[in-house]
Simulated scan of single mutants.
Amino acid sequence: MAEKKAQVSYSDLDLTRTADLYALEDRVGKAAAQVCDELAQEFPDGEPAVSVCTRRATDDAMAQLRRLGRATVAAKP
C-alpha cells in the first residue's frame, strides 16, 4: 500500500463560520486530488481510481478535522 501526505493550511480561516468550513473542505479536496494524481502517476496500474482515492482522502481528512474540533471544544473550560 502506497501512502502520501499533504499539509493544508487553515490558519487564515475561522472554523466557526460555515463559509470557512466549506473553504477548508475545498482546500482538502484539492490537496487530496493532487496527492492521488501523483500516486496514479507513480503506480499507473494501482487501485483505487483517482476519483475514489480523492473522495476517500477528503472524507478521511474531514473526519479527522471534525474529531479535532470536538476535542478542542471539549477541552475548553
Rank of each mutant, 00 (worst) to 15 (best):
A71E: 13
L15H: 04
D20I: 03
S11I: 01
V50Q: 00
E38Q: 07
A63N: 08
G46L: 05
E42P: 10
E47F: 05
A75P: 12
V50H: 00
L39I: 03
S9C: 08
V28K: 08
S9M: 01
S9L: 07
L24N: 04
E38I: 00
D12T: 07
A74G: 12
D37T: 15
D59G: 07
A71Q: 15
A61P: 06
L15C: 10
D45F: 02
A63E: 13
F43W: 13
E3Q: 12
V52C: 03
E25P: 01
D26S: 14
G29W: 03
A33C: 09
A63C: 08
R27A: 05
Q64W: 00
K5F: 06
G46S: 09
T16N: 15
E42Q: 14
P77F: 03
R27F: 02
F43C: 05
E38V: 11
Q7F: 07
R27N: 07
R67N: 06
A2K: 09
A32C: 01
M1I: 05
C36Y: 06
V35D: 09
D45C: 10
C53M: 07
C53A: 03
S51M: 03
Q41M: 10
S51F: 04
L65M: 15
C53F: 00
A19S: 15
P44N: 11
A32R: 02
A63G: 03
A31R: 11
A61F: 08
A61Q: 02
E42D: 14
A32F: 01
Q7A: 13
T72V: 14
A19G: 08
S11D: 15
R17C: 04
Y10I: 04
A49V: 05
T54V: 00
E3K: 10
R55F: 12
G46V: 03
A23L: 11
V73D: 08
M62T: 08
A74M: 10
G46F: 02
A6F: 03
A71R: 05
P44A: 03
R17I: 05
D14E: 10
L24I: 12
T58D: 01
D26Y: 02
P48L: 06
L68F: 05
V28N: 11
A71I: 09
D37S: 15
D26K: 15
R67C: 07
F43D: 14
A23W: 09
V52E: 13
E3V: 11
A74R: 13
K76E: 13
C36W: 08
E42K: 10
C53Y: 09
A2P: 15
R56L: 00
V35C: 02
R56Y: 05
D12Y: 05
D60L: 05
A23M: 12
K76L: 15
Q7P: 09
G29H: 01
Y22R: 14
F43E: 15
E38P: 03
R55S: 13
L68D: 04
R70I: 02
L24G: 09
R56K: 10
Q34C: 07
A31D: 01
